[in-house]
């Protein structure tokens, strides 16, 4: 898609010495799941790709260079840029040490959806409102709605608004009603016991791989409470209460700070519906504290301030 453009940008930035390293994507074991790739020399630019499978958010990798000299360039989509905004608001990254190469994002594909539509899919290209998937199984033309990541279907911020340079023209957001509200509402409609049962079942599958935390731009603590020995907020066993604790804490720690990037859910190997937790909190934060677009990081997080006239339910 934009592989050439990203390579050119990397070469230029590294040659000009504007940045000392460049974070982009490179093909992984399989072209539909690219890896983050760091290069430090212009010659390495050839390794980079930028295609419709570049879903991974690179923002959080900036933390790896927190203590190293020099400016890091990073390729960010609209949603990823919110992740960077999160890191900036959390004072985890200094803006002047980052060069944002923004990708006005046409939407990224869900590799599972794509693979279901065309087993062995290797590549995808956009044609209008459709995607053409190609692979060992031949070629197949599918509607964007069938194959995009859920988050991209409702993406409000495809173009990073804080980029130092853009790889292409800005793309407008998709004003699609938020389906996730329905998912939250469905759960809310259950009885308490049913919800308990639902979550117990979901959480029981979690293998505590911590991928969700590790990828999350809001979970950017230097040392996570889950790794603490004293107190041991999270017991080592993975019984029901511990699983509940883990998910309660993770979600609550990003409440009002989650940028709605869906990365946690995307990377979860066990398909735990983490966004149903995040969205519940996001909705409540917006409703209770009268905020709009609470997923956009702000100077002070919603739980770091108050209003004397906040709803009073506790008299």
């Amino acid at each position: 898609m934009r592989s050439e453009a990203v390579r050119a940008a990397a070469r230029r930035l590294l040659e000009e010495g504007k940045v000392v390293r460049f974070l982009g994507h490179a093909p992984g074991f399989d072209p539909t799941s690219p890896f983050p790739q760091l290069i430090t020399r212009a010659e390495e630019a050839e390794r980079l790709v930028l295609d419709h499978f570049c879903a991974p958010n690179l923002a959080k990798y900036l933390l790896d260079y927190e203590t190293q000299e020099g400016v890091t360039a990073v390729v960010l989509k609209g949603c990823d840029a919110l992740g960077l905004a999160r890191l900036l608001a959390d004072h985890r990254v200094a803006r002047d040490r980052v060069w944002v190469v923004g990708l006005p994002c046409p939407g990224m594909l869900d590799r599972d959806k794509a693979a279901a539509l065309l087993p062995g899919v290797q590549e995808a290209r956009a044609e209008g409102d459709e995607f053409v998937l190609t692979g060992a199984g031949g070629e197949r033309r599918v509607a964007a709605g069938q194959v995009l990541l859920d988050r991209c279907l409702v993406c409000a911020v495809p173009t990073p608004d804080d980029a130092d340079e853009l790889l292409g023209e800005p793309v407008p957001g998709r004003p699609v009603p938020r389906e996730e509200d329905a998912a939250v509402a469905a759960l809310e409609a259950m009885t308490s016991a049913e919800r308990k049962a639902y979550w117990t079942e979901q959480f029981s599958r979690c293998i505590r791989c911590m991928a969700c935390r590790n990828v999350c731009p809001a979970c950017n603590c230097r040392s996570c409470c889950f790794d603490s020995e004293e107190p041991r907020w999270l017991s080592r066993v993975t019984d029901g209460p511990a699983q509940e604790m883990f998910h309660f804490v993770r979600a609550l720690h990003v409440a009002g700070r989650c940028v709605d990037c869906h990365e946690c859910e995307r990377v979860c190997p066990m398909d735990i519906p983490l966004m149903k937790l995040n969205h519940k909190l996001l909705q409540d934060v917006e409703e209770l504290f009268e905020l709009e677009r609470a997923f956009v990081p702000r100077e002070v997080e919603p739980l770091g301030i108050y209003r004397p006239d906040d709803p009073e339910e506790f008299a």
Binding site: D90, H91, R92, N220, C221, R222, S223, S228, V300, E301, G304, I305
Partner: peptide
């Protein structure tokens, strides 16, 4: 200090 990330969320509170 070893654990503190310098995020400053404690400060305004």
């Amino acid at each position: 200090r070893a654990r503190c990330a310098g995020c400053e969320w404690c400060r305004p509170i």
